[in-house]
Simulated scan of single mutants.
Amino acid sequence: MSLAGLFPIDKWNFKSHSILNNLPEDEHTDLFSHMQEQRYGKGEVIFREGAVASGIFFIKKGKVKKYQVDQTGREQIIYVANTGELIGYHAILAEEYYPDSAATLEESVISFIPKEDFTAVLERSIVLPRRLLKALSHEFTVLTNSISVFAHRSVKERLAIALIVLREKFKAETLPGEEIMINLSRSDLANMVGTGNENIVRILTEFKAAGILNSQGRKIWITDVKELIRLSGYGIQG
């Protein structure tokens, strides 16, 4: 089911997947020739908040959570990056430390591009700086939207939104005709929504009783997307 006209999914997704698409051949070759591919198990940290930014990361396969940790040690998941997306480039462009941490949500294949190689291509390129600026501008819109939602919507609405967004993330790698399965721990889901695990379990049970979703273990699949959109608050607003 398409969300077109039902839910503003663009307000929840970055556009870093488009940065490297159809680059001039020499730039593409230059960048990709310096990529160092590495396989990660589920839950492995890619980089940590406050670490020296040594390069950028291209997700060839898998999903990665970007998060920050508060003084109590609790994670706040800022974003879930999908196959084809770039992460870590903000720190390189700003010449600062990584502003957040990144860890895999599933087994992933991720390529690393050293800072020196990325900046060298960036300095020569006409196309890449414009794309990065466009991507950064959109990310500002996404993050502003997220802050607004956290400030003004209930936990139930935030969970509904998170499930809709995650369904699109997992849909990207689901074969036609297959059920779209959200495979995420309850603690990660709680850290996306900004609440405790017990609230997540309680509301998921309510959604299941209402016929909105089914679950088995950590896997969740949505059975009534339109009702979930209505509960998110977006359906009411049209």
Results as ranks from 00 to 15, higher is better:
residue 182 I to T: 01
residue 158 R to S: 10
residue 75 E to I: 00
residue 61 K to T: 11
residue 184 L to K: 02
residue 58 F to K: 09
residue 72 T to V: 03
residue 172 A to G: 04
residue 65 K to M: 00
residue 116 E to H: 13
residue 130 R to W: 05
residue 129 P to K: 10
residue 28 H to L: 13
residue 52 V to N: 07
residue 190 A to C: 02
residue 140 F to L: 14
residue 207 F to T: 12
residue 6 L to I: 08
residue 139 E to G: 02
residue 181 M to Q: 04
residue 9 I to R: 13
residue 225 V to L: 15
residue 46 I to V: 14
residue 49 E to R: 04
residue 11 K to C: 08
residue 117 D to W: 06
residue 76 Q to R: 12
residue 29 T to M: 09
residue 84 G to H: 14
residue 179 E to R: 10
residue 227 E to L: 06
residue 110 I to Y: 11
residue 116 E to W: 04
residue 194 G to M: 03
residue 14 F to W: 01
residue 150 F to G: 13
residue 87 I to G: 04
residue 212 I to H: 09
residue 26 D to T: 11
residue 84 G to V: 14
residue 164 I to Y: 02
residue 192 M to Q: 07
residue 159 L to F: 09
residue 224 D to K: 11
residue 61 K to I: 03
residue 213 L to R: 09
residue 197 N to R: 11
residue 40 Y to C: 02
residue 206 E to Q: 15
residue 174 T to L: 05
residue 33 S to G: 03
residue 119 T to P: 00
residue 106 E to K: 06
residue 181 M to H: 08
residue 138 H to C: 03
residue 102 A to Q: 08
residue 53 A to P: 03
residue 205 T to Y: 12
residue 43 G to I: 05
residue 169 K to P: 00
residue 63 K to I: 00
residue 11 K to L: 15
residue 43 G to F: 06
residue 85 E to K: 05
residue 134 K to D: 12
residue 110 I to E: 09
residue 39 R to H: 08
residue 229 I to A: 05
residue 218 R to V: 08
residue 104 T to L: 08
residue 169 K to T: 09
residue 202 R to H: 13
residue 54 S to F: 03
residue 174 T to M: 07
residue 185 S to L: 09
residue 78 I to M: 13
residue 47 F to S: 01
residue 56 I to K: 07
residue 111 S to Y: 14
residue 211 G to R: 12
residue 215 S to K: 13
residue 55 G to T: 09
residue 158 R to A: 07
residue 119 T to E: 11
residue 10 D to T: 15
residue 198 E to L: 09
residue 168 E to W: 01
residue 143 L to G: 01
residue 225 V to Q: 11
residue 222 I to Y: 07
residue 101 S to Q: 10
residue 149 V to Y: 12
residue 146 S to I: 05
residue 33 S to K: 14
residue 70 D to R: 02
residue 31 L to K: 08
residue 72 T to K: 02
residue 231 L to F: 06
residue 129 P to D: 07
residue 48 R to I: 02
residue 48 R to A: 11
residue 138 H to V: 07
residue 191 N to H: 04
residue 17 H to G: 01
residue 208 K to M: 15
residue 94 A to R: 11
residue 42 K to V: 07
residue 177 G to Y: 05
residue 60 K to F: 05
residue 11 K to Y: 13
residue 84 G to M: 12
residue 174 T to H: 04
residue 88 G to M: 12
residue 10 D to H: 15
residue 135 A to Q: 01
residue 198 E to F: 08
residue 107 E to T: 07
residue 42 K to H: 11
residue 3 L to I: 03
residue 215 S to V: 04
residue 180 I to N: 01
residue 215 S to M: 12
residue 204 L to P: 10
residue 235 G to A: 07
residue 179 E to F: 01
residue 17 H to K: 14
residue 205 T to C: 06
residue 28 H to S: 15
residue 127 V to L: 04
residue 227 E to C: 03
residue 15 K to P: 00
residue 178 E to I: 00
residue 221 W to A: 04
residue 128 L to A: 02
residue 41 G to D: 11
residue 48 R to L: 13
residue 222 I to V: 13
residue 204 L to N: 08
residue 169 K to R: 13
residue 159 L to G: 06
residue 28 H to Q: 14
residue 79 Y to W: 01
residue 79 Y to V: 00
residue 232 S to N: 04
residue 159 L to W: 11
residue 20 L to P: 09
residue 197 N to S: 09
residue 86 L to V: 05
residue 194 G to H: 01
residue 179 E to N: 00
residue 218 R to N: 14
residue 95 E to W: 06
